[in-house]
Amino acid sequence: MQNLIQDSTVEWTDLGAGIKRKIMAYNDSMMLVKVAFESGAVGVLHQHPHTQASYVSKGVFDISIDGVTTRLHAGDVYFVPSELIHGAVCIESGELVDVFSPMREDFV
């Protein structure tokens, strides 16, 4: 993995249903991923062993964590401890910047 990554050099992966992802950087202990959502796209409820911190870089999202849903806007952050059920509904097209620890082996 490079130490300096230019956004324009990283390809988007289309996940379908109005969601695409860019894996920007990672090592064994951490991963940074950009996820773009079209308005109305749903990041289905799920859980994983990784700790996750996410920054809303653009748009508006309804974020659900452990049964509680809150509307977040650009500049807001959410934190998901390991194994908590969470998901996102995109209200206004936007982008999340997700950080996982350890890295998501299932993404690469």
Rank of each mutant, 00 (worst) to 15 (best):
M1W: 02
M1D: 11
Q2L: 07
N3A: 03
L4G: 04
Q6Y: 13
Q6V: 02
S8W: 01
E11H: 14
E11Y: 01
W12P: 03
L15V: 03
G16D: 08
G16R: 11
G16H: 05
A17Q: 12
G18E: 10
G18F: 01
I19Q: 05
R21W: 06
K22P: 03
K22M: 11
A25C: 05
D28V: 00
M31K: 04
M31W: 01
V33W: 02
K34L: 08
F37Q: 12
E38D: 14
E38M: 02
S39K: 15
G40R: 07
A41C: 05
V44H: 14
L45R: 02
H46I: 12
Q47P: 03
Q47H: 15
P49Q: 04
H50C: 15
H50V: 02
H50F: 03
H50D: 05
A53R: 04
A53N: 09
Y55N: 11
Y55F: 12
K58V: 11
K58Y: 03
G59S: 10
G59M: 07
F61R: 06
V68T: 14
T69D: 07
T69E: 11
T70K: 14
R71V: 02
A74H: 07
E83T: 04
E83C: 05
L84N: 09
L84H: 07
I85T: 08
I85L: 06
H86E: 12
G87F: 03
A88D: 15
V89L: 15
C90H: 01
I91Y: 00
I91F: 00
